[in-house]
Write a protein that binds this DNA or RNA. Structure first.
Length: 601
RNA sequence: CGGGGCGUAGCGCAGCUUGGUAGCGCGUUCGGUUCGGGACCGAAAAGUCGGAGGUUCAAAUCCUCUCGCCCCGACCA
């Protein structure tokens, strides 16, 4: 491809709107342009990258037995009312009316559509398992789009849905997708971790996220330094510390202390001159009609997904609002404590009474003589102890992990790292198939709900994440499999016959060898071409200069700068050998992103 | 949605405090000299100053209201 015939509008200056490197370079190097907040046009280079990523996804999905379909972007409200999400999804769902006044939405995800499709055409156990996927533009009206492609409102997603006859089959489908995802992200050149994740609003019982390690990410994951345990921060398990609790005789006497206006951990610790770890923090949640009082130490944070899991709750935990706190504790916000909490409470006036659960984190159990709220305005209690002063319905791991905590599996040290979620797999069970009557007849002619899984990949987000992991101060350095072209060929003087001849010969040779090459045939000075080549970030650069061309040599250089690592001690390559050398280098680069598992037949 | 910031030529910005001719750099076009890490000289095109209303003889500048964009917090591929 000749660059004079290819739209690559590079910018010398950083657009004011961009901050993150991936965002800056995608704009500066001419990969995309913004149309509105979180909505982008992909220019030829950008579209080639997305197509490369999509091709990898298609290969792996097909190899895993999934079939590609394309579902509508515009969806009728009826379907969403059937699943209940028309009212639950919230303002992220872009809704509109057609000319007849009927409600529609632009699909943010496709569980409803796929379930409606499958229930109509799949009736027999003989047709299962079934895995359908699509690569499509999604729209989510995000409250805050940011960082270019990392969080757009319109984005490209691969979503897959599996349907099985039973749980065991569904687990096989889940595992198959999990392995396919590992291969996909490896092939995209990403440094990632599969982590245990919360099932969130999509529901289900099992879920993993694929997180790309990167400081610019919005997520935090915990990883163990000794074993391969990794989880989303909100779920990362912590091994309880050794009990420091003295026996009952060492409990100091319970005592009230006046703490006028001191509500927060900071205020109370400063006022009483104690460490945060000497405090007991009581956080109240609403869980349906019930209340959950979660007790963690002052230096810890509650992890709601863990609480939900430990208590085995169905309902989601919502923070309890101020007047409800007053109703439960009899005190204003800031003075809640475990001592003397009611066993039952009616949250809403005249409403049914709900239970008050007390869930205690290990660290609270293992620490003696804590300071806690007294359930009385402007008052705290000293020397509060589990067992003597209050009882727990459940003791468990309820807090967010901190760096330096111990791994629950092996006792190794936990590390917190920032990351970008590029994929998510969910085991759904019958969450959608039961209410939407997606059923089949089993071998005994008995009607059963299909067991489902759903699997998403952020295609556009992969492009951004790859740049976050592969760039330097001069621009992008694409991993070969998703680079828009493999080779950037730079004739440095367009008026030198030896240069243009050598360039044409190499271009032809590469084309015949099936190597994708972009030729910078613009009448620009060498400096401009080098700068733009660094910015655009193609893996291999071939520079053809007048001096070299006269001697019959060109310069072969890797964008990532690790030429020596690939056995390229000398940048100068004879023109006649250039194509062979490039193929050799490309083969070595390609070997870097081959998944460890054996290729499929 | 809350908090902060910004809208002036394709991009980056100045001008606004103290109203009066719309400017600079880059890019673009034409001519010339250059040619291995964003060259130089000369000429040129290009802006309803985000929009609406108001104050004024006069508004990019002052006032009001709007729209858009970016960044920080609760969500997710």
């Amino acid at each position: 491809m000749r660059q004079t015939r290819f739209l690559v509008p590079t910018l010398r200056e950083v657009p004011a709107e961009a901050e993150l490197k991936s965002h800056v370079y995608l704009l500066r190097a001419g990969y995309m342009r913004k149309l509105a907040a979180g909505i982008y046009s992909y220019l030829p280079l950008g579209w080639r990258v997305l197509q490369k990523i999509q091709a990898i996804i298609r290969q792996e999905m097909d190899a895993a037995g999934a079939q590609e379909v394309l579902l509508p972007a515009v969806q009728p409200a009826e379907l969403w009312k059937e699943s209940g999400r028309w009212s639950f999804y919230g303002p992220e769902l872009l809704r509109f009316k057609d000319r007849k006044g009927s409600d529609y939405c632009v699909g943010p995800t496709h569980e409803e559509v796929i379930t409606a499709l499958v229930r109509g055409d799949v009736r027999s156990w003989r047709q299962l398992p079934l895995n359908l996927y699509q690569i499509q533009t999604k729209f989510r009206d995000e409250m805050r789009p940011r960082a270019g492609l990392l969080r757009g409102r319109e984005f490209t997603m691969k979503d897959a849905y599996s349907f099985d006859a039973d749980e065991a089959g569904a687990h096989r489908s889940y595992q198959s997708m999990y392995q396919a995802y590992r291969r996909i992200f490896t092939r995209c050149g990403l440094d990632f971790r599969p982590v245990e994740a919360d099932t969130g609003n999509i529901g289900g019982s099992l879920s993993h996220e694929f997180q790309v390690l990167c400081e610019a990410g919005e997520d935090t994951i915990v990883t163990c330094s000794s074993c391969d345990y990794a989880a989303n921060l909100e779920l990362g398990e912590v091994r309880p510390t050794e009990a420091t609790l003295p026996d009952g005789k060492s409990f100091a006497a319970l005592a009230e202390v006046a703490t006028p206006g001191k509500r927060t951990v900071e205020e109370v610790t400063a006022f009483l001159d104690v460490e945060p770890r000497a405090l007991l923090k009581t956080v109240l949640f609403r869980a349906g009609p019930d209340v959950v009082a979660v007790l963690v130490r002052g230096d810890h944070e509650v992890a709601p997904p863990k609480v939900k899991k430990v208590l085995g709750l169905e309902a989601t935990l919502e923070p309890l609002e101020g007047d409800a706190v007053q109703r439960v504790t009899g005190a204003p916000v800031g003075f809640a404590g475990p001592v003397g909490l009611p066993a039952e409470v009616s949250l809403d006036k005249g409403g049914a009474a709900g239970r008050v659960w007390v869930a205690v984190d290990h660290a609270v159990k293992n620490t003696a003589n804590l300071v806690a709220g007294a359930n009385k305005a402007d008052t705290h209690l000293r020397n509060v102890n589990l067992g003597r002063d209050f009882k727990a319905d459940k003791v468990g791991d309820l807090r967010t992990a901190k760096a330096g905590d111990r791994c629950a599996r092996c006792g190794g040290e936990l590390t917190l790292r920032r990351s970008i979620e590029v994929g998510h797999v969910f085991f759904l069970g019958t969450k959608y198939s039961t209410p939407m009557r997606c059923v089949f007849l089993d071998e005994g002619a008995k009607e059963k709900a299909m067991v489902m899984g759903c699997y998403g990949i952020g295609v556009t987000r992969i492009a951004a994440a790859a740049i976050e992991q592969h760039h330097d101060q001069n621009g992008i350095a694409w991993p070969l499999p998703i680079a828009p072209f493999a080779v950037h060929l730079l004739p440095l003087q367009m008026n030198d016959p030896a240069v243009t001849q050598a360039t044409a010969a190499i271009e032809k040779g590469l084309a015949e060898a099936g190597v994708e090459v972009l030729v910078d045939d613009r009448d620009e000075r060498p400096g401009v071409k080098f700068k733009d080549a660094d910015l655009v970030g193609l893996p291999v650069r071939l520079a053809v200069g007048a001096r070299g061309a006269a001697e019959g040599v060109v310069e072969l250089k890797l964008r990532a700068g690790d030429d020596a690592a690939l056995g390229l001690p000398d940048l100068r390559v004879p023109v006649g050998e250039a194509v062979a050398r490039v193929r050799d280098v490309l083969a070595k680069l390609a070997a870097r992103t081959v998944p460890p598992e054996a290729p499929r037949a």
